[in-house]
């Protein structure tokens, strides 16, 4: 692989300045797993449909399986591993535990991060807003009723 096909990238990952050398065709998801051992974002459908690979780039949710790692240069990235602070779960995480908003758990980080974007824009989301934001995150175990309950609970915890 020629040097033109590689990139040195630097970005903020969960609050920490980091760098990596990435191939042009690598997705950010692959780099998070290979370079940083972060597996909370996971590739499932590989098409941007299921949401298992959701991460936040500059505060907005993206599909990590479609996002070239080279494009992360200079950005601020947040994965589910970056939500807990000082060993304390983030209120959204607490709400998902409290309401059992998951079964197998594979899609859960994606739902949590999408909820984070939702609540940052709509701190008191309506049912319609919740469905609008989460409609692109799929749960094959179909824990949807519990997930929606968890999102509502998360909104309460974050206002508290």
């Amino acid at each position: 692989m020629s040097a033109r096909h590689e990139r040195a990238v630097a970005f903020t990952l969960n609050g920490r300045r980091v760098g990596a050398t990435v191939a042009t065709h690598e997705t950010i998801l692959e780099v998070l797993q290979r370079e940083f051992g972060l597996f909370g974002a996971r590739e499932s459908c590989g098409q941007g449909l299921c949401g298992c690979c959701t991460l936040l780039v500059n505060g907005t949710a993206v599909s990590g399986c479609l996002y070239f790692a080279a494009f992360a240069d200079g950005a601020e990235l947040t994965t589910v591993e970056g939500l807990a602070k000082n060993g304390e779960l983030h209120p959204i995480q607490r709400a998902f535990v409290e309401k059992s908003g998951f079964q197998c758990g594979f899609c859960t980080p994606g739902f949590i991060l999408m909820t984070k974007e939702l609540l940052s824009r709509h701190p008191q989301p309506t049912e319609d807003e919740i469905r609008h934001y989460l409609s692109g995150n799929l749960c094959r175990c179909a824990a949807y009723p519990d997930i929606i309950a968890a999102v509502k609970r998360a909104a309460e915890l974050m206002r508290a």
């Binding site: 941007g48 993206v62 996002y67 609008h132």
Partner: peptide
């Protein structure tokens, strides 16, 4: 735009 793909795709 509200039903065009999903939030993650529209963000990018």
């Amino acid at each position: 735009l509200r039903t065009l793909s999903n939030v993650r795709i529209r963000n990018v």
